[in-house]
Design a protein around this nucleic acid. Structure first.
Length: 710
RNA sequence: CCGAGGGUAGCUCAGCGGUUAGAGCAGGGGACUCAUAAUCUCCGGGUCGUGGGUUCGAUUCCCACCCCUCGGACCA
């Protein structure tokens, strides 16, 4: 084939070096790895780069917590990340780090050119400063009282109680999460990249195919207004690179992260950073960034602006993938579905995950679901039952019954083999467009044909009287298997390796589809892919199920605690409890397990208990709060105590009709709470995880509104 | 509330202006035994969210509505 050889540069997003790789991360890496392997199989030149995003305050603090120097900490994370990727056959040409000499030089070069181009502005920023730790605090490291509704213990960016957004400087009674000290407001000059300078160019890129339509659409959200300046500086102490010409200033790690792609390239080339830039801008070079939808902003706006400002070509294409859900829900620690790469690999076959992700991946940024029941079904029936079995049922009998020699394919099977070969361009197009779901569908359809062929020929019968005819049937099946192996090779490199070995072939390339498998002696056949046992998933999930933190008290449905708790049990309540295997999975022990095993709270005295004044109340009226997804506005009759308005997070579990007239238990002496939709004066009690899983407390009909509960 | 994406068989998903709407799994009946209890075959099963419209013709295009998911921040 006379395909022009493409020069392709592929990157995967740099994982942040403060945590382990989990199977959600793997979606994007497996997607990119498959694409890279496909391009190489076609004979193109690909350089595949990645590395750790190793800078920033969270890493600095985390290292300190572990009593390590940041450099030691990130070195360890780097090792762990590389080991995790290797387990899943994700192979980079260079896995580097943003904390590298090359990256420092590159950041300085970028910055200098941006500055000289007049794209950097300087102005003061007032932020909170922790006087004990002597650090400026990111918004998430500050808590305080919401200036809008008075809710306590809210983060520095927005209030979970009323939803109001504000600056951390607006908080009442702010505290540092790091030291607990009261932060001071402190002004400091910051450096900004003026994104608006690049508006026209960025708009052109977005409309010009750098991203797919769905992503371009999403970008309009930000692009509609004027583009805001981007603060690229952070104050000392900060784990990162100092900004030249400034004192006590560091590059924000989202500036050095994408530049890290070039640093990783320099590392791969074992060359000076300038040479990496030359490589990047070489004519005909195609660059592809594989990223998750959560970091579109950086890669579609900041990064191209940085490149343009530094005189380098913008990225060719951003390949955006969605996030992973498990059994239709978010990964959840309490449900045991927050699974690390290492944990998965310890219990299950990585190539099964590669295959399953492939069956679900398309070019859209839609989330993909790892549905355990479907996962088992797809892998066992398609990967094992159809694909591996096809080769096994051909190689096995040839070895056992026919001296381990394959022969020529059956002439009568010519039409089928032609179908196998003519599928190549369509499969290649699907690969090229990242439509791996299409790839696996086509491959399975071909495998069905081959299995059907073998079935109809029944070589096991003819082997008794016409062994050469049987040999040609099995050899035909083997040829089918060989071609399918080529098609599958980007997804299943180990599978392909074993087939190559059995057939005594060198590494198969895409062009080998057109070759013919000549008669040969077969090497011993190796098991290609194992079935997934449901039990192993159960064990993995159970091992992974951590007890819910005591903080995650989901019991009382309080107007004042209408927010997800740290343990995640509240969110878990948004779905009815179901088997980890999902509806199509067989019932399992876990399905019956309680949603959470909530630890007993600390012992309290009778005095402490008496401090809580619980009363019987009758619901006079109930009205769902329109603009809220959870809140219901209740008018309560507390007898002699009069009427109360309570906002309760029970909208998903109860309708207004179900509530009116009903008697409930209310905490009557709870401090009134101002919320976005009014003041809530008390809280009603219920059991359950939250969301739709709620059971209101009620009393026998002989209780009277206003009576105290003792 | 605003924006985006989606609602297609019991489940997970393809398809998309045009012949009787598909796949895998699940369910039911057969066949076969070479193969990792795999494979093959037949059957059942969908008013393609609801209501309008455009059209010779709509699941596929347009409008409205309902439901689900995700985003909406100076984190960037």
């Amino acid at each position: 084939m006379a395909l022009a050889k493409r020069q392709i540069l592929v990157t995967s997003a740099l994982p942040y070096a403060n945590g382990a790789i989990h199977i959600g991360h793997l979606v994007g890496y497996i997607q990119a790895d498959i694409w890279v392997r496909f391009q190489r199989l076609r004979g193109h030149d690909v350089v595949y780069l990645c590395g750790d995003d190793a800078h920033g305050t969270p890493i600095m603090l985390r290292a300190r917590q572990e009593k390590l120097a940041p450099e030691q900490f990130i070195a360890r994370m780097n090792q762990e990340h590389q080991a995790d990727f290797a387990r899943f056959d994700i192979v980079f040409d260079s896995y580097y780090s943003t904390h590298s000499p090359e990256n420092r030089v590159l950041c300085e070069r970028f910055y200098e050119r941006l500055r000289q181009g007049g794209h950097i502005a300087q102005r003061p920023v007032e932020q909170f400063f922790d006087p004990v730790e002597n650090i400026f605090l990111p918004d998430r490291f500050i808590k305080g009282t919401c200036p809008a509704c008075g809710a306590a213990d809210q983060y520095g960016d927005s209030c979970d109680a009323c939803g109001k957004h504000y600056a951390p400087t607006d908080l009442i009674d702010p505290r540092s999460v790091v030291s607990g000290a009261t932060p001071r407001r402190k002004s400091s000059p910051h450096l900004f990249l003026q994104l608006e300078d690049f508006r026209d160019q960025l708009g052109g890129l977005i409309r010009g195919g750098m991203v797919d339509a769905a992503v371009a659409n999403k970008l309009q959200e930000w692009f509609g207004d004027r583009l805001k300046d981007w603060d690229i500086s952070r104050d000392a102490p900060f784990f990162g690179f100092p900004i030249p010409g400034q004192t006590e200033k560091y590059f924000y790690n989202w500036l050095d992260a994408p530049i890290g792609y070039l640093a990783s390239l320099a590392h791969y080339l074992r060359a000076e950073p300038a040479e990496a830039e030359d490589f990047w801008r070489a004519p005909g070079r195609e660059t592809y960034h594989f990223i998750g939808k959560d970091i579109i902003y950086f890669h579609a706006l900041f990064w191209p602006a940085m490149l343009l400002g530094a005189g380098l070509p913008p990225p060719g294409k951003l390949c955006v993938h969605g996030h992973l859900t498990i059994n239709g829900g978010k990964m959840s620690k309490s449900r045991g579905t927050f699974i690390s790469a290492e944990q998965y690999a310890r219990h299950l076959d990585p190539q099964a995950l590669r295959y399953y992700f492939a069956t679900r991946l398309t070019a859209t940024p839609a989330d993909i679901d790892l549905h355990f029941g479907d996962f088992i079904a797809r892998v066992n029936s398609e990967l094992v039952g159809k694909l591996a079995n096809l080769i096994s049922r051909a190689a096995g009998p040839l070895a056992k019954l026919l001296e381990g020699r394959s022969g020529a394919a059956a002439p009568a099977a010519g039409a089928m083999l032609a179908d196998f070969r003519t599928a190549a361009p369509e499969i290649a197009t699907d690969y090229e467009n990242r439509n791996y779901a299409g790839v696996t569908r086509r491959i399975c359809a071909l495998a069905d044909m081959a299995n059907k062929y073998v079935e109809e020929q029944a070589p096991w019968s003819m082997v008794k009287t016409a062994p050469e005819a049987a040999r040609s049937v099995w050899s035909t099946a083997l040829e089918c298997g060989r071609i399918l192996t080529i098609y599958l090779k980007p997804i299943l490199p180990r599978f392909a390796e074993k087939v190559e070995q059995c057939l005594g072939l060198g590494p198969l390339a895409w062009a080998d589809v057109e070759q013919v498998l000549s008669p040969r002696r077969l090497a011993p056949f190796e098991h290609l892919a194992g079935r997934i046992e449901e039990r192993k998933i159960e064990v993995m999930v159970r091992e992974n199920q951590t007890p819910v933190a005591p903080a995650a008290v989901a019991g009382p449905v309080a107007a004042t605690s209408d927010r997800p708790t740290s343990g995640g049990s509240w969110r878990a309540g948004n779905e009815s409890p179901k088997s980890p295997l999902g509806p199509t999975g067989a019932p399992s022990a876990i399905a019956q397990a309680p949603v959470t095993a909530e630890p007993l709270a600390a012992t309290c005295t009778i005095e402490q208990f008496n401090a809580v004044d619980l009363r019987v109340a009758r619901v006079l009226s109930a009205e769902p709060v329109q603009a809220s997804e959870k809140l219901m506005r209740l008018e309560l009759d507390l007898g002699a105590l009069g009427r109360r308005t309570v906002l309760a997070g029970i909208k998903k579990a109860y309708s207004a009709e179900q509530l009116v007239g009903r008697q409930v238990i209310v905490c009557a002496n709870l401090a009134p709470r101002k919320m976005k939709f009014g003041v809530s004066d008390g809280m009603i009690l219920a059991a359950g995880a939250g969301g739709t899983d709620l059971a209101l407390l009620s009393v026998e009909s002989n209780a009277t509104p206003g009576q105290r509960v003792h």
